[in-house]
Design a protein around this nucleic acid. Structure first.
Length: 889
RNA sequence: GGAGGCAUAGCUCAGCUGGUUCAGAGCAUCUGCCUUACAAGCAGAGGGUCCGCGGUUCGAACCCGUGUGCCUCCA
């Protein structure tokens, strides 16, 4: 004790030190053998390519708060960290690395490429986990997992085989969202729709009968005319009835295409004539199927035109270049009727940003309809709150998605990921789905299907890998090896987990699918609560992004304001589900709070302590009152925060604690017991004050782990292996067990007197005398010392009548009179009082009206009526006092 | 085009099953203070037709309808 402490809070001096200590002591490690109640969170695994951004900061701070609190409440807290292999993102990074080294991916074999990828992963992957340590994240690092590590990959493969066996996975030729940059299919959820300004071209198609008649179609994608196989009109459209059944010619290539009729065509849109391009549009594909039209795919996987485009001017060129060129060429050839500005929606790839191309291809799918039929709990559990969403309004979004669920495309044309365990013969026929070629043959033979005497070496495995989310959806189970060994001790103990904290935008990608996996593979929900964080935006509500450069580097912020300051600042204003508009001033507030705490500690630390016997009884008694009062406050806030935590209102819980520390403890309590400068403090008060401080640090620890540990460690001699992070969280006491002095009138008096000083420009150093006319003197008498000390009052006299020539300070229904040796501005004073009387008159009128209203008296609860009567009486008394004071001016 | 959400002080948000003359917090703002823990501070103050309109009710920020504006998700 009594160490020299720096005048300001300097987090850099101790944050790293305590984090290393926590790790050394293995406070964050949890074993399944424990008798304690488990509390489990699995981290939303960040991309292995990721670097810490503000979204992670918010998300992981919230998880850390929940975990640390649970740990202090005596639970066996386990927060499992890890990373996601992020197939598209990582593969892109590796390709880029190879390019820098002058290596082309196409020159490498699959195995060569993968060895480079692993090399990249070992070297650069997972930086983000180290960054989380800076934030104070109390993860069980011994349990760090990676979605592509061998055992998790094995789980993925087993699940694929299992679902295939159950008939829930199939392979089919379908229209997919094709990412020409990533050269892979992506799922619907990975497509981001954007509105863009484009042009609507009106193009003439001449009829094949050489009559010079033409049909005009409108399209935003003129390059796709080369893939046209029909023109479609609405059968009810009188304008075009005569054309149906005739043939038209595709400009330039002069392919003959039929004019057909289908109600799908919107007569209002464009010209009412639709060009049908089954290979490059989802709806056109459906039309093509219906009328058995050919499919002409004119694009390569990179989005270049191929030989099917027929016109050599365009073959081998990029789709966007062709769009420009063909528009010019059509114009020159007289095929363009007009061009309009047009706003439309285009799909872009979430990962690469490339414009998505609808493309027909053979992919693997999960049959979601069937899946949901098997697992109705996936929807029910959320709707009946067995799995609670915070905020609950996310339930609607969830239901809507589930009810309109579509099949999940799970194959990706990449190398970095789990390779699909499907085997084909030399003609490309699927032999079987199995772990190995040998097993595939065994299965095939067993079914008597492809029993052509093939050998394993005759088969080849599917070239594609699985969607990354196909491994993430197993995360809550796979991190505890629940697939390898269904009944191992860890999974039995830690699963289902308690809370999941995640961003709302991955509700469908991840949360919903984890719930599906939970019920399908374990017959149990994966977690009980889902906390949706908001999105971190800048002050102009723009999403923080690298390209905008509007995102501060979290590590710089931590360096500047301390991890605690950043955590506190981010959380104080971010209710669940609300976006947070980040501004550095938020973090400043956090830092200021830490500084406040630091200085409160310095104050206490500097006190000289003497035994109680050295003090007179009055001081001891007075301090005892202050102590009792704070005990009551502390307990009340503890109850309040408990409730808020139950509802996952973390920012409100923090706000309560913030005010408890700043207002109740620092501004009131410490000022109440603070000895005169240079004087000592009595031992029992000191001890109690330190205990309060310790308890406050515990309550705050989940939010601000570092400063609370630093102070807690300083407060007493602590042994190795002790830490606030494993201390017992303060428990709520029965309110009836606590003596709670009612200081409300006293506090109000003090504030009124301070206010008077401010208004009259009196220095706080100048003391004066006051007179109190109270309805119940007991609310003041025992606490007079507080008024004297905190409002610098020299003497207090209780009176029965009003005091002449004095200023009246109303305190609830009591009156305080102050006689000042100042020239009083009687006019101003009168005006003020008159206004007050006017207000009270109005108030009284409304209360009278209520009490005089028969229907109110008949319908309102008796307590309410009683309350109104009390208000009436109080108002009357106040008016009387004010009128009296007005008369004596 | 479909679904959902939101609208309360300058900003970010509370306001539980309607009941303190139309209401709260933090931050920001303003005023006065360098009062020996803290100017990253202390003491005060000001600030709101609770989005518009209509309805239900003795009584509406809260319930119902309608209009407007914003956001999110899906196609």
């Amino acid at each position: 004790m009594n160490k020299e402490l720096s005048k300001t809070y300097t987090p850099q001096a101790f944050e790293d030190k305590w984090y290393s200590y926590w790790l050394e002591q293995k406070f964050f490690h949890a074993d399944s053998g424990s008798e304690k109640e488990p509390y489990t969170i699995v981290i939303p695994p960040p991309n292995v390519t990721g670097v810490l951004h503000m979204g992670h900061m918010l998300n992981n701070t919230i998880q850390d708060i929940l975990v640390r609190r649970a740990r202090m409440q005596g639970k066996n807290a386990c927060w499992v960290p890890g990373t996601d292999h992020a197939s598209i993102a990582t593969e892109a990074k590796v390709v880029q690395m190879l390019r820098e080294r002058g290596i082309k991916k196409s020159d490498l074999s699959r195995d060569e490429f993968l060895s480079y990828a692993w090399e990249w992963k070992e070297k650069y992957g997972g930086i983000i986990l180290d960054q989380l340590k800076k934030l104070g994240a109390s993860c069980d690092w011994d349990r760090t997992r990676f979605t592509l590590e061998p055992s998790l990959s094995e789980a993925v493969i087993d699940v694929f085989i299992d679902l295939h066996k159950k008939g829930l996975i199939y392979r089919g030729l379908r229209m997919v969202n094709w990412d020409p940059q990533g050269k892979t299919a992506v799922s619907d959820e990975e497509v981001i729709h954007k509105e863009v300004n484009s042009k609507l071209y009106y193009i003439k198609y001449f009829l094949a009968d050489d009559t010079g008649q033409f049909i005009t179609i409108a399209t935003t994608r003129p390059e796709t005319i080369l893939a046209d196989v029909a023109i479609c009109v609405n059968p009810n459209d009188e304008r075009f009835k005569h054309l149906v059944g005739k043939k038209a010619l595709v400009p330039f290539i002069k392919r003959e295409i039929p004019v057909i009729a289908d109600e799908y065509v919107d007569m209002e849109f464009g010209t009412g004539c639709l060009k049908v391009t089954p290979a490059h549009d989802v709806n056109d594909y459906a039309l093509g199927q219906k009328y058995k039209l050919p499919v002409i795919d004119i694009l390569t996987e990179e989005g270049f035109l191929n030989e099917h485009a027929e016109d050599t001017r365009y073959i081998g060129k990029d789709r966007f270049a062709v769009r420009k060129q063909i528009a010019i060429d059509l114009e020159e050839a007289g095929h363009i009727l007009k061009v309009e500005e047009y706003k439309n929606q285009i799909g872009t790839s979430e990962r690469t940003g490339a414009v998505i191309e609808p493309r027909l291809s053979l992919q693997w799918w999960v049959d979601m309809k069937k899946f949901m039929e098997r697992n109705p709990q996936v929807l029910d559990a959320v709707m009946n709150d067995e799995i609670q969403f915070h905020p609950a309004k996310m339930k609607n979004t969830y239901r809507h998605w589930i009810e309109n669920i579509k099949d999940w495309c799970i194959s990706r044309q990449l190398w970095w990921g789990q390779r699909i365990p499907a085997w084909y013969d030399n003609e490309g026929n699927l032999v079987a789905v199995a772990k190995t070629a040998r097993q595939a043959i065994e299965i095939a033979n067993g079914q008597g299907l492809k029993a052509k005497g093939q050998k394993p070496e005759d088969l080849h495995q599917d070239e594609d890998v699985l969607d990354t989310w196909f491994s993430s959806w197993l995360w809550p189970i796979s991190v505890f090896d629940g697939f390898k060994d269904k009944d191992n001790a860890d999974i039995k103990y830690f699963y289902p987990t308690q809370d999941l904290v995640t961003a709302p935008e991955i509700l469908f990608f991840w949360v919903a699918r984890m719930i599906m996996a939970g019920y399908e593979f374990r017959g149990e929900k994966p977690f009980s609560n889902v906390y949706y964080t908001g999105i971190v935006r800048d002050k102009q509500r723009r999403k923080m992004s690298k390209s905008l450069g509007n995102s501060p580097d979290p590590l710089d912020l931590i360096e500047k304001f301390g991890a605690d300051g950043v955590r506190m600042g981010m959380l104080i204003c971010s209710p669940a589900g609300n976006d947070i508009l980040f501004d550095e001033s938020m973090v400043e507030q956090g830092r200021n709070f830490a500084n406040k705490i630091w200085n409160a500690y310095r104050l206490i630390n500097g006190w000289e302590v003497k035994p109680d016997s050295a003090f007179n009884d009055d001081i001891l008694k007075a301090n005892a009152i202050s102590i009792d009062w704070f005990k009551g406050r502390f307990n009340a806030i503890l109850i309040e925060t408990e409730d808020k935590f139950k509802d996952y209102r973390l920012s409100e819980a923090l706000m309560s604690i913030y005010k408890l520390i700043w207002d109740d403890y620092c501004a009131w309590y410490l000022e109440m017991i603070k000895p005169v400068y240079g004087e000592p403090i009595d031992e029992s008060t000191y001890k109690q004050t330190v205990i309060f401080f310790e308890e406050l640090m515990k309550v705050l620890h989940p939010f601000m782990p570092f400063i609370t540990e630093e102070i807690w460690q300083n407060m007493a001699e602590r042994k190795q292996g002790e830490s606030i992070c494993i201390e017992k969280y303060p428990e709520i006491k029965l309110v009836s067990d606590l003596p709670t002095p009612d200081l409300s009138r006293v506090f109000e008096s003090i504030q009124q007197i301070r206010n008077l000083r401010n208004a009259k420009g009196l220095s706080p150093k100048e003391s004066f005398e006051i007179f109190i006319k109270a309805n119940s003197e007991n609310l003041y008498k025992p606490y007079m010392f507080l008024i004297q000390k905190l409002a610098n009052v020299s003497a207090i006299t209780f009176v029965k009548e009003k005091v002449e020539h004095a200023i009246l300070l109303p305190v609830d229904i009591d009156e305080i009179y102050v006689v000042l040796n100042l020239q009083m501005d009687a006019g101003a004073e009168k005006e003020k009082i008159t206004k007050e009387i006017e207000y009270l008159d109005g108030f009284l009128k409304s209360v009278d009206a209520k009490l005089g209203n028969e229907k109110f008296m008949a319908n309102a609860k008796p307590e309410l009526v009683e309350k109104e009567r009390q208000k009436q009486a109080d108002a009357l008394q106040k008016i009387l006092a004010l009128k009296g004071s007005l008369g004596s001016l």
